[in-house]
Simulated assay, not measured.
Amino acid sequence: MDSDAPQSLRALVDAAESKREAIESSHNSTSASYAAEVESAVSLYTKLLDQISAAALFSPNETVDDIATSELPFLLAPFRLAEIVQRTPHLRPQERIALLRRARLAYDAFLNQIDAYGLVAGPPYDKLLERHREEGERFAIVPATADPAAKRAGKIASFRAEKQLRDKLEVLRRNPRYAEAGGDEELVREVHLAHIAFCVHTAFNSLDSLNRELDLLAQAPEDPAEGTAATTTTDDARLRRNGEQPNDPTLRLDAPLHSRIGNTGPLLSKEGRPLQPFTLLGANSRSEMTRGVFRPGHNLPTMSIDEYLEEERRRGNIIEGGEQPRPVVDEDDFEAADRETYKAREWDEFKDNNPRGSGNTMNMG
């Protein structure tokens, strides 16, 4: 960007772009530092838009030829803001809905301004912009009523158009005249306009994705009332002060499996290995657990681990004390000695008549 642009705007856009590139190259989008970086970038782009408006860089009475080459990149400010806003992490469904609608307003501002300068001209983008204005949150690049073949063809066409725009932009940027100090102004201007065309394409794809996400979030269960969460936290603190176990749903199990499918038998083997499947829930926070339970058929926990083991102990399904020692036969008790002898002979005869593996006839034709 040359020296024609105001110094404060150039410094601000450089800082915002640097922050955006760092966010896009980050591989840890769940950390607190990532959320802070996104918030900082949103603040920078918001400030940039305010200063662009205050400086009156763009006017509805102008054409694209009236815009200085150094000012063309400022047209992308609302588009960049929308992109960064969508990256905000750690939100509940209702907060995410509000954030997506904020991003949508930024995309609208970008497309309206670009269209005012005649940069959304020609198919398919002129028709897409018309449909976007008419359909609002129902907008999709390929209408939902289209048949599968039409949807597939639409996705392929969009992918090819994106590849052509990206390739054109890369070819222009690799031109030696563009890399020269100061650059060829005509070529630099063409690069900026190609970049704007690429962002127009990306904006429509982002609006398509954004609208589909809004539709999914609208079907998500409502969050628990804040008052309920505060009460639960207070009760847990009181239980901890009294040395009792908090009523934490993350430390609970589903109902005993045999009570649901008729399965009976011991819970553990003699060696202490589990004989029946059960699910242990991890120690995630309640808010993370709530956000994750948006799928049908989820079995909510119904009893704690201690309650589960107590129920199994009451039913006699837990063997305590390990393997019981075999009773020692009194040598003077001839009847008991005879019973043990006959029992050993019967077992030997059974093993002779039934070799190991003789009862397994599966997969043998």
Rank of each mutant, 00 (worst) to 15 (best):
Gln219Trp: 02
Asn211Met: 07
Asp208Tyr: 02
Ala179Ser: 13
Gly183His: 00
Asp215Ile: 00
Ile141Lys: 14
Ile156Gln: 11
Ala144Lys: 14
Tyr178Thr: 03
Lys151Val: 15
Ala197Tyr: 04
Gln219Ala: 15
Ala150Cys: 03
Ile196Ala: 01
His195Pro: 00
Asp167Glu: 08
Ala146Leu: 04
Ala153Gly: 11
Leu210Glu: 09
Ala181Leu: 10
Lys168Leu: 06
Arg173Lys: 07
Gly183Trp: 00
Cys199Thr: 08
Asp215Lys: 07
Glu185Gln: 15
His201Trp: 05
Glu213His: 02
Arg212Thr: 11
Ala218Arg: 15
Lys168Ile: 01
Val171Asp: 05
His201Arg: 03
Ala153Trp: 10
Asn205Ser: 13
Gln219Asp: 12
Arg173Phe: 02
Arg189Gly: 01
Glu170Arg: 04
Ser209Asp: 15
Ser206Val: 03
Arg173Glu: 04
Phe204Trp: 05
Ser158Met: 10
Ala181Ser: 09
Ser158Pro: 04
Glu213Cys: 03
Phe204Tyr: 11
Gln219Cys: 10
Lys151Ala: 15
Ala153Pro: 14
Asp184Phe: 01
Lys151Phe: 10
Val188Lys: 11
Ile196Glu: 06
Asp215Arg: 11
Ala146Tyr: 08
Glu186Lys: 10
Glu170Asn: 04
Leu214Asp: 07
Ser206Glu: 13
Ser206Phe: 04
Lys163Phe: 08
Leu214Ile: 05
Ser158Asn: 13
Asp208Ala: 03
Leu172Ala: 00
Ile196Ser: 03
Glu213Lys: 07
Arg174Asn: 12
Lys163Gly: 10
Glu180Cys: 02
Gly154Ala: 13
Gln164His: 06
Thr202Phe: 09
Gly154Pro: 06
Leu193Cys: 04
Glu186Pro: 01
Thr145Tyr: 08
Glu185Leu: 14
Arg166Asp: 09
Gly182Leu: 00
Ala203His: 02
Ser209Arg: 15
Lys155Ala: 15
Glu162Cys: 05
Gly183Ile: 01
Pro143Tyr: 10
Gly183Cys: 02
Ser158Cys: 05
Pro176Cys: 00
Leu217Ser: 04
Gly154Thr: 12
Arg152Gln: 15
Ser206Lys: 10
Pro176Glu: 00
Thr145Lys: 11
Ile156Pro: 02
